[in-house]
Simulated scan of single mutants.
Amino acid sequence: MRLVDLHCHLDLYPDFEAMVSECDRLGIFTLAVTTTPKAWSRNHKLASSTKFVRAALGLHPQLVAERWKEIELWERLLDQTRYVGEVGLDAGPRYHSSLGRQTEVFRHILQCCARAGGKILSIHSVRSASKVLDLIEEEASDGRTRFVFHWFTGSVAEARRATELGCYFSVNAEMLSKERARAVVATIPDDRLLTETDGPFTWNGQISARPKDVGAALSLLGKMRGLPETRCAELVFQNFKALTAH
């Protein structure tokens, strides 16, 4: 099976370089998201020598309160990559106080990506899916930018709205172990589904999940949709090709 892990923090594993090599050796299409633009250079250097790993330029909303000034560096680096992430909003209790600043930063990211065209964003949207969608509609709804909601925690109505805007969704096994998440994912069209691990923040037994463990999400998707795991893998790979074709 051709596996796709569209959201993994490879640089947060202790064996970062070995992880990049493993993904490439196993032929797993892996998006190495970053949390700050200062992490970009090393990720890009390692990924650029591979066939299957790509690095994404990020500024994580949970870090915006302390590191929002790095948006200037982020903007300078944008022309070096097609992939952007992890970016977005987090309105959870711990980060709600910085939501105003997060919104400013994310709006600027969307504006820059809209001007550049052809970018693919991996989006964080904890308790903020509607606000994220508002910003997409305001700043980047012309179809030149592609959006993937990572670990989507919004409602069925918000998922439908995102689908109508052309968004994709990357799902992981831990997410699909929750009844509420499964109910939302069940409403997402087959042609908008992708897979992720969000490693090392998810688990395979007692150890952090790695991109090679993304098959667990495929297995759960298959059970939900009454499809063999191999068919789910084909479906996700076709969606990945469609996402990256433009």
Results as ranks from 00 to 15, higher is better:
P211K: 12
T35R: 10
T81C: 04
F149G: 00
R76H: 13
D79Y: 10
T50L: 13
G199W: 04
G215C: 15
L78Q: 07
G199P: 00
Q111H: 05
R115Q: 05
S48N: 11
C8K: 06
G27H: 09
T30Q: 01
G58Y: 15
L135M: 12
M224S: 08
Q102N: 05
C8W: 04
L12G: 09
F16R: 15
E86H: 12
G143F: 11
K131P: 03
R225A: 11
V156G: 00
G88T: 07
S49R: 14
H60Y: 15
D90F: 07
R146N: 09
L110D: 05
C23K: 02
P93Y: 06
T197Q: 06
S128H: 03
E158D: 01
E22I: 07
V20W: 07
S128C: 03
K223I: 12
V156T: 01
E179A: 06
E229A: 07
A186G: 03
L12C: 15
K178T: 11
M1I: 04
L10K: 13
G88M: 11
T202H: 07
A159T: 00
F29C: 02
L3P: 01
G85K: 04
A186M: 03
L218D: 15
T81Q: 08
A183G: 08
K131R: 08
T81W: 02
T36I: 11
T103W: 05
L89R: 08
F29N: 02
T35I: 13
H246Y: 11
E75N: 14
S97I: 13
C23V: 09
G85L: 03
E158M: 00
V132I: 06
V236L: 09
A183K: 06
L221W: 06
R76I: 11
R182I: 01
I120M: 01
E22S: 09
G222L: 12
S219R: 13
T197W: 02
A162D: 02
L218K: 14
D79T: 06
H124P: 08
S122D: 09
T145I: 15
V156K: 00
A242V: 14
K69I: 09
A140S: 15
S177P: 08
E179S: 04
N43Q: 11
E234D: 12
H9Y: 13
R82K: 15
K38N: 13
T145A: 11
T81I: 08
V171Q: 08
E174T: 12
S177L: 08
A159E: 00
L99M: 14
D24Y: 00
I123A: 00
